[in-house]
Design a protein around this nucleic acid. Structure first.
Length: 522
RNA sequence: GGCCGGUUCGUCUAUCGGCUAGGACAGCCCCCUUUCACGGGGCAAAGACGGGUUCGAUUCCCGUACCGGCUACCA
């Protein structure tokens, strides 16, 4: 028996190099970004390099704009690759479609060494065979019944090749081979390679499949540690065999198969559909399919801060062993270790995700928040005359905002009078005494304005308000809610006197009068 | 079906053989707040099951169950 055993040596003498290798087929979802993140954290923790490689070998699934989207997403998250298709690097090109010729050479070498072979079966041939034989596998058991350079006489193979018959190149899995390797997260994993079929390495269009491309490029790009989702575990033996055939197992990167991110309800891998169904983003940023024009919302546009997004992703499958949950990217880099990455998948919890964002909002500087919030104000058509005023308002309302757009609902009344007044919450307990009180309050404010005051400190406003209430033999408490609703339109917002202080006396008067008008006309 | 992986409160998780199984999110209650939040305090809530190993297992081993992944000329 041919035993392949790969051990992790604790050597780290060569510079750590990792890669993220997505296919440009659409938006980048949570699981993808987390794979990037763990790659990045591992590389930076060890002072290594992070490479972005685009695996665009499937021309039928290629989607225009997806590559740009991936780069933009990494930029938003702050996970900038050292080498990429856009910025190049010493191992360019970084797009597999541009490396087509390279893979052919290696496929030829495998064929020459008897480790791979030509297969001429058409799609129909394969379909028929699969229909005929339950659990059909293109391997030892049925290889000889198929149209390939192992089963066919040499002359016929020659003839097929000379007449340009379409073919694929398949790896020849050894009849008996136990493949064992050390996964950095899972420990020793072993497979009986004969249960794997002869995977296609080179497709009929001359493009490599993932199996060949990942091995060749990881070698050529000197990748030392390869991270990928757990869904790749079953094909690991193919890759290990290829490493053995092509470059030697001593050169092979160490593998780490990351746990999956699961649906919040039910079971299975989290998908784009789950987000739509349950009402939360799954992609990092908005993604518009160029064909259907359909847009899928992203965490960025939903109003998440990149710091929070990265933080929450890191905690999905990793922790530092303490109760600490809020980590900056620098702290993550400093503390990250693969030993603390989980083996089991984690269900995504949107409520917890929002909590991370709320925490990061509180930590973020008001000036920074103002910058981020400005576009939402623009979109809502709310004019911000002074940036400094926005910064001040943000300080007043930030702890009641979870997502960036919450600033609109929580603070629009600082910039314009509310368009809707929740009269229904005032009316039941409304009485003439209260009306008189507010008429008097307006007069007081008018006098202050005549005295040359535009506004007054919240504390003074509050004292005056309470004194006036007492004078009208009313409890201040019974007046606060109506006052709040007059100012903001409903039962929300920061302290009423903080609001009055900021919107200034003139505006407050206008709003009181407006509501008084509504109340008397009803 | 076959192969591989996984399994601690509803969810994310701590525990690296030693018993009040800790924290966070969500839920509920109270305080603060004459709005809503934030904040503070509290309640409720977990080791899939069965065997071993051991003085002692959530922790180590085996089996079972359940869940997941893969099983394409997709990645």
């Amino acid at each position: 028996m041919n035993i392949i055993f790969v051990k992790i040596e604790e050597r780290m003498e060569s510079k750590v190099r990792v890669r993220f290798a997505p296919s440009p087929t659409g938006g980048l979802h949570l699981g993808g970004v987390r794979t990037v993140l763990f790659n990045y954290l591992f590389a930076k923790h060890h002072g290594g390099e992070f490479v972005l490689r685009i695996e665009d070998t499937d021309q039928t699934r290629f989607v225009a704009g997806a590559e740009q989207y991936i780069q933009d997403t990494l930029a938003w998250c702050g996970l900038i690759p050292n080498e990429s298709p856009l910025h190049g690097g010493p191992f360019a090109p970084y797009r597999q479609s541009e490396r087509k010729a390279i893979y052919k050479e290696y496929a030829d070498q495998l064929i020459k060494n008897g480790q791979a072979y030509y297969a001429f079966d058409t799609a129909a041939d394969l379909e028929a065979k699969r229909a005929e034989i339950a659990n059909f596998q293109y391997s030892k058991a049925y290889r000889m019944e198929m149209k390939n350079s192992i089963a066919l006489p040499t002359e016929e193979v020659e003839k097929l090749l000379q007449t340009n018959t379409p073919y694929v190149v398949r790896i020849k899995i050894p009849d008996q081979a136990e493949v064992t390797f050390e996964d950095m997260i899972r420990g020793e994993v072993s497979f009986d390679a004969s249960t794997v079929d002869d995977k296609v390495l080179l497709k009929a269009d001359g493009m490599p499949t993932y199996h060949l491309a990942v091995v060749v490029d990881d070698h050529l790009m000197k990748i030392t540690h390869a991270f990928r989702g757990e869904e790749w575990l079953p094909s690991a033996p193919v890759h290990i065999l290829l490493w053995q055939y092509l470059f030697g197992l001593d050169k092979m990167p160490k593998w780490a198969h990351l746990p999956l991110i699961l649906k919040p309800d039910g079971h299975g891998k989290l998908s784009k559909r789950d987000g739509e169904r349950l009402g939360f983003p799954v992609f990092a940023m908005d993604w518009t399919d160029p064909n259907t024009k359909e847009t899928t919302i992203g965490f960025k546009e939903k109003g998440f801060l990149p710091e929070a997004f990265v933080n929450l992703l890191a905690m999905l499958g990793w922790n530092d062993g303490t109760d600490k949950e809020i980590f900056s990217i620098e702290e993550l880099i400093a503390n990250f270790s693969l030993e603390r990455v989980h083996k089991g998948g984690a269900k995504f919890d949107y409520e917890k995700a929002k909590w991370f964002n709320a925490e990061w909002m509180k930590k973020t500087d008001n000036n920074k928040l103002a910058e981020l919030v400005q576009p939402y104000f623009d979109k809502a058509g709310i004019e911000v005359h002074e940036a400094s005023y926005l910064v001040k308002v943000i300080g007043l309302v930030k702890e009641r905002c979870v997502l960036l757009p919450d600033f609109i609902t929580q603070s629009s009344f600082f910039f314009q009078a509310p368009s809707v007044i929740d009269i229904a919450s005032i009316q039941p307990k409304w009485e003439e005494k209260k009306q008189d009180f507010f008429i008097e309050l307006v007069k007081i404010y008018a006098n202050k304005i005549v005295e040359g005051l535009k506004t007054m400190p919240a504390e003074t406003l509050e004292t005056d308000f309470k004194e006036l209430a007492t004078a009208h033999s009313l409890k201040p408490g019974d007046l606060m809610l109506p006052f709040r609703i007059m100012l903001v339109g409903g039962k929300f917002g920061p302290g009423v006197f903080d609001i009055v202080e900021n919107i200034e006396l003139q505006d407050a008067m206008t709003r009181i009068n407006h509501t008084l008008g509504l109340l008397s006309s009803n």
